[in-house]
Design a binder for these strands. Sequence first.
DNA 1: TCATGATTATAAATTTAATTTATAAAGATA
DNA 2: TATCTTTATAAATTAAATTTATAATCATGA
Lengths: 322, 322
Amino acid sequence: MTIQQLKYVVALDEERHFARAAEVCMVTQPGLTIQLKNLEEEIGIKIFDRNKVPLTPTVLGKEIINRARKILRETDEIRDFVINQKNLLEGELKLGIISTLSPYLIPLFISAMKTIAPKVNFVIKEANTGQLMQDVETGAIDVAIMATPTGHPNLVEHAIFKEPFVAYLNENHPMANDDFYELQPYDKPELLLLQNEYCYNAQLLDICGIKEPGKIKEQFSYDISSIETLKNLVRAKLGFAIIPALSIINEKETALFKTFKDPKPVREISFVVSDTFSKKLLLEKMSQAVWDCLPEALKKDFSYKKIKWNDSPYFINAVSKI
Amino acid sequence: MTIQQLKYVVALDEERHFARAAEVCMVTQPGLTIQLKNLEEEIGIKIFDRNKVPLTPTVLGKEIINRARKILRETDEIRDFVINQKNLLEGELKLGIISTLSPYLIPLFISAMKTIAPKVNFVIKEANTGQLMQDVETGAIDVAIMATPTGHPNLVEHAIFKEPFVAYLNENHPMANDDFYELQPYDKPELLLLQNEYCYNAQLLDICGIKEPGKIKEQFSYDISSIETLKNLVRAKLGFAIIPALSIINEKETALFKTFKDPKPVREISFVVSDTFSKKLLLEKMSQAVWDCLPEALKKDFSYKKIKWNDSPYFINAVSKI
DNA sequence: TCATGATTATAAATTTAATTTATAAAGATA
DNA sequence: TATCTTTATAAATTAAATTTATAATCATGA
């Protein structure tokens, strides 16, 4: 069965005449006759009764013609769908992004998008994970870039990359001269966390295998609201921090940023959209833009351990290769 | 776009590997690669991202893969549908037929069906049109053979043939020696009708252009329940009858049966089924059987005037050629 | 870093299939 | 009976898919 044969069947039903149907299909009559014959032999039934004038579909033939029509419509819809998607590559897109990623990714992302889809205007909002999920659901933003899986049933996640965590030690740390960092029991009470970043903190607690956040170092009297602040606290020898890899790509002095031994703890970064989001080609282009602007090290395969930040039943904690 | 290309796309999504997908499709890897390329160029979008390992569908690609799956499923369903229909060519079928047709058609029909679908057992019920329509709707019978259109929205009609009416004159009739019959005003009061056959009588009144049945000849004191009775009444010179053509095929003495001049009045005989009736192939075979057993004269084109028997809005009184 | 293995892409040759041209057969028409 | 219309068939042609062979790419391990 070929799509062409289905076209012949439908044309023949409309024209009720071999020669005219062939003309409509821009082929000659014997070509159409033979292909109809081939199809009829393949499915094992006569679709048209040639004894009647004008020729008439058989009872079963009518059913097959209807099904053929549907299939042809659907093949056309594939084409139309792609064309429509291309039209959606202009206009405005409201993008939310978690604050522990935003300062490092957004500048690179925006310049990559300028090349890939120059007619799209981005309105960017920085917020925490909970806020972003809510905003996506209400439609306040179109797309969020955040750590996943969310476990939220109405949101669709498109994973883009795995961002490893790195440890930032101060120069007095016992492992300050090692190549890799491995979690030490004495580091746990020193772990610095962020204010108002439940998701991020939960990931760190998971890395450190800490169940009860109460045991960790008390927060300071002011809000630690950014990764940059964390770094400065480490530099002031006030603790030890675990930070995402993209936050060190602009650092000059890299000696005290230690990657973990394999499997490295990572957070999965994804585009999160509502399940009714329709700009799929734009999403694809954005995914491309993020991938293009990533440092090479993050594009390569590596052994990783995906870190969880919630206890959703949808979440599966996995050790695998990208 | 070809069905084969869609198969390749789906196989590739399942295997995520060109060589393995090609193996599944029983082709070589370059063949599959080229066809995927052709399809991607035709619709204008990359379906798979070959940069990732293993290769991954693009966001838009996922959508296309889903649509491809649906189309392939539907093509398979065409095949399955035909196979299922063939299985329905055995078992029992409850067939209803109007009494003005039954004695002439059923014997011929049954012997034709014995060749075409020998494993079908028919349970035949003779009844009037109203009863048959009700029986089809309730499922008491599967198929009815009757005059159409019925105008009933839940019934589906499959026209089989047009049966002309003929006039039966007694030997004293002024046109007894003519080749054709044309309706005469003096015949109207002499027209013989059937008891309990609203539909048949309505057709005769339509032929004769009579609006008010009250004006016609009073019925006799006993029920005239069959065409054969009508014929005998004519032979007894008790009136004039219009009868369906199939009722004279076994008559030896044909001189007093007169066909009408063109356009001949006809009744359209159809299979009538409920709109949920599913044995379409069987219906087709039955249609074939009826056609095969018809006298040649009824298979040929002729100019006709379709006679109505109800005032349904669905009915269109037409003068045309078969 | 160089060779190796795995994977996808490309080129040319081959096979398969669809289509055309030409014509026959069947049926209707005049 | 001849003619016209329509569909079917045969052989030749064209187009397209597929195969074989090989190149290019990229990750991997010595």
